[in-house]
Amino acid sequence: MQEQPDGLIAELQAKNPKAFERIYERYSESTFGVIYSVIGDKHVAEEVLQDVFLKIWDNAESYNSSKGRFFTWVLNIARNAAIDKTRSKAYKNKKKNLTAEYFVDIIEEKTNLSSKVDAIGIKKYIEVLKPYCKKIIDLLYFKGFTQSEASEELDMPLGTIKTRNRNCINKLREILTA
């Protein structure tokens, strides 16, 4: 359950530094996870995370709640920044040393999960996750593919993507609330 903190967002848009702090506390770790899954390098991911939160600060007023969730707005900024980074020269040179780039591998390899996370639940989820779920979630959530781009990439009809993804996420929710 994650209620959208509308008051806090309004304060952020009014450039209240306190609100920024709270927004950071609330969204930074999951955003960091998304960025790291795309980038695969902790230091570069930190740089991108900083850029992303500066953008959130600078452009907060451009968030429009009629277009979607604040969570999604932040997610879009993060994915775009991370993907831009992977296209940069500096990153390409560094790429040889990368270890992980995929949320499933990252979570599997991690030994101590954040206190914010139901560690047992998440680990269990990754274990039972169907291969197509891994791909769908990676593309749609972590990589920011649109439904039709994912449909093309995975060679699945649009409707199939939609229903399968729902099943994949339902499984996650079941395990987390169990």
Partner: peptide, 11 residues
């Protein structure tokens, strides 16, 4: 749920 998932992927 998604927040939990990507939080788990943060180093």
């Amino acid at each position: 749920a998604l927040t939990q998932l990507s939080t788990a992927a943060a180093p």
